[in-house]
Every structure is written in C-alpha cells, then in structure tokens.
Amino acid sequence: MPVCEPVGETVHDHTSEVADVAAFRERLGLDALIDVHTHFMPQNVLDKVWAYFDSAGPLTGRPWPIRYRIEEQARVGQLRAFGVRRFTSMLYPHKPGMAAWLDQWSADFASRTPDCLHTATFYPEESAPGYVADALAAGARVFKSHIQVGDYDPNDPLLDAVWGLLEDAGTPIVVHCGSGPAPGRFTGPDRIAALLARYPRLPLIVAHMGMPEYAEFLDLADRYPRLLLDTTMAFTDFTESDIPFPRDAVPRLRDLGDRILFGSDFPNIPYRYLDALEALERFGLGDDWVRGVVHHNAATLFGLG
C-alpha cells in the first residue's frame, strides 16, 4: 500500500492498521466488510470539501484532520486492503445544474471500480426526474441526498417525481437529514416524517444514525419497516464527546439490528477506520449484531449473497 503525501497533513502509514482491521474481521469470522457511506467524487469537488474541513467551518466548529487524504486509487486500494468488499461513492450537489454532472462522473467511477456500488444523487430542479431515471437505467444501486449541504426541503414539489421513481424502484437513498453536527434549515425528523407519510415505501438510510435526533429517527424506524440507519461516525469517541448516543436507547439498537448498516465517512474522518469498527462494540450488543451491521444487513439489502 503506497503512502501518499497529503497536503497540509501528517503522513500516516496505515500498514499496521490493515493488520488490525483484519484481526477485527477474523474475530467475527468475516472475510469482508461492506461500507455504505464512503466518499468518492471529482477531485476539484473533493478538494473543496477537504478545504472546508481544514477550516474547521461552522458546521464542524472543531479541528478535523482528514486521516486518509490520499489520491483516488490509493483510497480505493486502502478500502480493499481493509477487506471492504463493497463501498459507495457518496457525492452531492449544493446548487442547481450540478447533480447530473456528478451522476455522470459517478457512473464512470463505478464502471472502472467494480466493487463500488454505483451511486447517484439529485437536487430539487425541473430536470431531476429525467436524470434520476437515466441513472436508474444506467444501473445506479444507491442515491445520496444531503439536506444540510444542499439546503433544500425534502418535501420540495420539484422532488415529488424523484421520490416516486425511487420508491417504485426500491433503490436505497442515504440521506443526511439529522441536525448534527449543526442544524440546517431543513434538517430534523419532522420533515422526514412528512416525506414518509407520502412515500411510506421509500428505502431511506438515515445517515449518522440521525444524530443528534437519534431517538426520533429510531421512532420513525419503528413506524416504517423500510427505513434503515447507518452508523457513520456514531458511537466513536470523537462523536460521543459532543453528541453521545442516549444510553436508554441502546436496547433499541438490538431490536432494530437488521436495519442498521455500517458507514464510515471514509476518507473524510479524523480518526482511524478501525476506530469506527471498534465503536460498534461499545454497547456490548454481541458479535451477531456487529456481523449484521458490518456485512450481513447490507449484503441482504443490495442482494450481494
């Protein structure tokens, strides 16, 4: 595994971590992991994302040293070295006229990266139903909606046809809709509740366990059997210090264990990939629960065998 010099960062040699992640998998009897929340996007877009984290912007308010700031193929190789069997290319627009271009880039990335689940995105605009239909026809397996960065209401009428298409297709949508690390104008469980009241079969994957509204999004999962949640950044020391998961809700994690998926936010995390995995053991929910989260649940969702 090559070690690349990241701009403005200390070089990390991840060789020993590869062995530690392998040991984690071996303890669970798993040959592989599935990570539903990883970021690959055009380099000029990713550079802007990294610059934002470097500035400790208003949505973070704390130092955020990106640990895996390495070139694209090295990042792909890093996930493979960790034993990640399938991953995603989460990407998202922040203005009109951007999503279709991102979808084209992501389709090309998926075509040259067969272990990446073909990912697409959208934005509330007149052209959205057309390019979402095109992405589905091209084989998109998962979509990303970032309500906080996109600064849009998921119930915007311009998205009605999009949600209908995705509900009918049964294609999962990873949606950043919780109000952490800082609230947006349209974040929070109420707007997602309104969306699901209209499209109850939508297979939404609530990113970051819906932090900080953990309990409210678990309530929605109780009501809507196709709603899932991903663990991205949840339960880690980094997050627990500011947005702790409520201890009285831990039994609900066990009850909903088959609808919780592992996500990491790789490469944009300020700690080791291993930390995100070991955080899943924080509450002592057992090896079967962890195996489901890091592999089995996503394998079932995406029909990976």
Rank of each mutant, 00 (worst) to 15 (best):
C177F: 00
C177N: 04
C177S: 13
S179A: 12
A182C: 07
P183Q: 06
F186Y: 15
F186E: 04
F186W: 14
I192M: 12
A193T: 14
L195Q: 10
L195Y: 06
A197Y: 02
Y199T: 04
R201F: 02
L202M: 03
L202K: 00
L204W: 01
L204P: 01
H208R: 06
M209K: 04
G210K: 02
M211L: 13
P212N: 07
E213P: 01
Y214S: 01
L218D: 09
D219W: 07
L220M: 08
D222H: 13
R223N: 14
P225M: 13
R226P: 00
R226L: 09
L227R: 02
L228P: 00
L228A: 04
L228Y: 15
T231K: 08
T231Y: 03
T231S: 15
A234F: 04
F235G: 01
E240I: 10
P246T: 08
R247S: 12
V250P: 07
V250I: 15
D255F: 09
G257T: 05
D258T: 15
F262H: 15
G263M: 05
S264N: 13
D265G: 08
P267V: 07
P270F: 10
P270Y: 09
P270S: 07
Y271I: 05
Y271K: 09
Y273W: 14
L274G: 06
E281C: 12
G284M: 10
G284E: 03
L285H: 04
G286W: 08
D288S: 09
V290Q: 07
V290R: 02
G292I: 05
G292Q: 05
G292K: 09
V294F: 14
V294Y: 01
N297K: 14
N297G: 12
